[in-house]
């Protein structure tokens, strides 16, 4: 079981590395959304700092929506996915490996890029640690929940808008606790409560979502 997990993880990371241009596009998208926002306001420091949690998280959500569409599509089109379905190993393990690789190649990059962006928005430096931690705990959940939506819409070639309708309502808790932790950190309040809740969501996601993804993939291929 672990063997298949590592094999799929390694293969997807290798693919992400070979196609690193795509990763750069996602990162640029994330940076652009955040960087253009101040241009639409009068860029007063206090306002920017106040809206920065919402802004960062909305940018993460949009970037996730764009990148999630590629999560299973190439494997679906070239026939690898049906080989996954026929594997004697549990499909949920393969699904978890794919989401993990996806997260390392997108979510983790946002986490690494975020300090630069929040400092650009004028967020005090003491909040940066909590902000990174909240993204670190929140983005994997986005991948896990989003994986269910992508798996369900696999048979539809252009499912982008539909996908947003399916998964954005499910992202509400992550958005609230993620932005809540940032907000608390910025105004100097303890953020531990929100971070614990993000961790709890992640724990629930890791245990339940792979099975739901596996079921969704089977429905889509049948």
């Amino acid at each position: 079981m672990l063997g298949v997990f590592w094999a799929v993880l390694r293969r997807d990371l290798l693919l992400a590395f070979r196609q690193r241009g795509v990763l750069v596009h996602h990162l640029l998208f994330f940076v652009l959304v955040v960087a253009l926002f101040p241009l639409g306001t009068r860029a007063e420091g206090a306002i920017l700092v106040a809206v920065s949690p919402a802004l960062i998280w909305m940018a993460v959500l949009l970037a996730a929506l764009l990148s999630l569409q590629r999560l299973f599509r190439p494997d679906y089109e070239d026939g690898t996915l049906e080989q996954y379905l026929l594997s004697p190993e549990p499909l949920a393990v393969i699904a978890l490996a794919k989401v993990t690789a996806y997260w390392i190649a997108s979510g983790l990059i946002f986490v690494v890029a975020s300090p630069l962006l929040v400092l650009l928005l004028g967020v005090p430096a003491h909040a940066v640690g909590v902000i990174m931690l909240s993204l670190l705990l929140g983005t994997p959940t986005l991948g896990l929940v989003g994986g269910i939506g992508t798996a369900l819409t696999l048979s539809l070639p252009r499912a982008g808008l539909l996908l947003s309708l399916l998964i954005f309502p499910l992202y509400v808790p992550v958005l609230i606790f993620g932005a809540g932790a940032m907000q608390a950190a910025i105004i100097g309040l303890p953020a531990a409560g929100a971070l614990y809740l993000l961790g709890a969501l992640l724990a629930l996601g890791v245990t339940a979502a792979p099975w739901a993804i596996a079921a969704a993939l089977k429905i889509s291929l049948e």
Partner: peptide, 22 residues
């Protein structure tokens, strides 16, 4: 469908397929 990813080599593709097949 051949189940081959275009960005990977034949060796890499077959390695994954055989592992997935157990």
């Amino acid at each position: 469908d051949n189940a081959l990813n275009g960005a990977l080599t034949p060796v890499e593709n077959l390695d994954l397929l055989m592992r997935v097949a157990g």
